[in-house]
């Protein structure tokens, strides 16, 4: 039971970093990234590439941390000044392309067979690392969210043209947000690889992207605590499916499908009945502590 708790906390922490990454992109800035699993996968495959080629762990971290923002810039280049529909399509396509590349080019990290990565044997250490990463990501997101930068990002979310007529280049700000949020997701991916110890393309599908979306929409995209809360709920449901299957004597596959259906239903119901999510964006008050 203790082992399960440690594992659950580790996973919630890692996925919360992904949620925070989406909070910065969507909750603050209004960018609809339907390929959110991609930076996560790029980070994980940085570690996977290093492991498959006998490079040290540090090299994997470096590859993951550097390649993710670079690929992010590459992906938003075509989507840059287009309507959100196209942005969603391009990020979705990019995420799938990355997964298909990992699947079909075994030279990178084992193709469909996947690859084993050094696994952090001490599970408590893994959990502490995940919590540390979550803490750093949350502090950074909080710093941005409460700053003039966060303010102008929210203006872009509300009305991009307004931002431009106020003398800000929306595209430059989008690039900045992409670099920051993708780097966070990439680091989460590196850590995920070393926690799980094994990577295969099947772990980075569109389904994972929508797991994060469900979590963020449920918790409240524009609220940092909301995002972590949503991720905790969704990820706890995800990791406990096996126990639910055992306990209810339903087949595992059916339980997994019911879970997927529930997530879909949650996305729809939140939009119908609580469009801001469980926790709303905090109002910035003029008399509030302005640190």
């Amino acid at each position: 039971m203790i082992d399960f708790a440690i594992f659950a906390v580790t996973m919630i922490a890692i996925w919360s970093v992904l949620g925070i990454s989406l909070h910065l992109q969507f909750g603050l800035t209004g960018l609809v990234n339907f390929g959110q699993v991609m930076p996560f996968a790029v980070g994980a495959y940085g570690a996977g590439f290093a492991a498959a080629h006998g490079l040290p762990i540090a090299a994997g971290i470096a590859i993951g941390a550097l390649l993710t923002p670079l690929l992010g810039l590459l992906v938003i280049q075509p989507a840059g000044r287009l309507a959100q529909d196209y942005w969603a399509l391009v990020t979705l396509g990019a995420g799938e392309i990355f997964r298909l590349t990992m699947l079909n080019v075994p030279a990178i990290a084992g193709g469909v067979e996947g690859t084993t990565v050094y696994r952090i044997a001490d599970r408590s250490l893994a959990m502490l690392l995940a919590l540390a990463l979550l803490g750093a990501a949350a502090l950074l997101a909080r710093r941005i969210g409460r700053s003039p930068l966060g303010r102008i990002l929210r203006v872009l979310r509300e009305d991009e043209t307004l931002g431009a007529t106020l003398g800000r280049n929306p595209f430059a700000l989008h690039r900045l947000v992409t670099v920051v949020s993708w780097t966070l997701a990439g680091l989460a991916g590196v850590l995920y690889a070393h926690v799980v110890g094994y990577l295969s393309p099947g772990a980075f599908t569109v389904g994972e992207t929508f797991l994060i979306w469900t979590a963020v929409v449920l918790g409240g995209p524009a609220s940092l605590p909301g995002v972590v809360l949503g991720t905790a709920v969704v990820e706890l449901t995800a990791v406990s499916t096996r126990f639910v299957a055992q306990w209810s004597h339903l087949p595992f596959e059916l339980t997994a499908n019911l879970r997927l259906g529930t997530f879909g239903l949650v996305l729809v119901l939140v939009f119908l009945f609580r469009p801001d999510g469980l926790l709303r964006e905090a109002k910035a008050r003029s008399d509030a502590d302005r640190r």
């Binding site: 209004g30 609809v32 969603a88 979306w213 997927l260 879909g264 996305l267 729809v268 939009f271």
Partner: peptide, 28 residues
Amino acid sequence: ARLRGISPDGKMIVSWGVALFLRAAVAS
């Protein structure tokens, strides 16, 4: 029909929710 007034982004996200639900229903 209940969400005609929300942003296109919101509708896109909802449409994924519907898709996940339908896929799960078919698979179940």
